[in-house]
Amino acid sequence: MFRILNTKTIAFVIALLLLSGLTACKKEAPQEQALEETPFTGHILSGSTASPVRIEVFSDMQCPACRELFIGIIRPVIKEYQDKVCVIYHEFPLSGHQYARPAARYVAAAAKLGQRQALSVYEAIFNDQVFWGVDGSLEKSVSKALSGEDFTKAMQILRDANSLAQINETIEKELQLGMRKGVNSTPTMFVSYSGKEEKLDRRPPSFQIMKQFLDPLVK
């Protein structure tokens, strides 16, 4: 009896038990549930919520690291994967950044016109961050990004008290959502795939790493 139950056998059983225990620790279902329960906010810049990979970014328009993330990673990801990766931007204006909230309002107004317009305004605002970050001249950047007609519509949205109140409320909701998700710095990125969600809030990955990670997931 004891010959059969030698130490190797016992060790192997312990190893199996530990492995199965670790597997059981996976909490995929609650995470998926939490995502579904979250009321949808944010601007979809590419793909749809049905895309196999979802990248959610909590970003402050005046934060240089957010600019770097958008230009270095998010923009190439949108270009490369289009509808295969859903990119959602959440406004998370930090209190220390004077023009972050007005910038978020411009983006929200453009988003009311469509996904393409929202993306154009994001690009323009991030590209010109060093300029409007000094004097708040956001209108100049937005006017470059939109057609004359769209720009007029966006400005009308911002001048309308009801629309503006709605936009401000949405920004507040985004901030609350971010806090619920544990966002305490910008940019914070959540990458969701195959029932998992990874939070990246320090140094973002390079596009090359991101590409090698995303390629097998979107095949």
Binding site: K26, V191, K196, E198, K199, L200, R202, R203, P204, P205, S206, I209, F213
Partner: peptide, 13 residues
């Protein structure tokens, strides 16, 4: 294993 992207970012760091 649970967070391959985070681990990749850490190695890159």
């Amino acid at each position: 294993i649970e967070s391959p992207l985070q681990f990749a970012v850490t190695i890159a760091g």
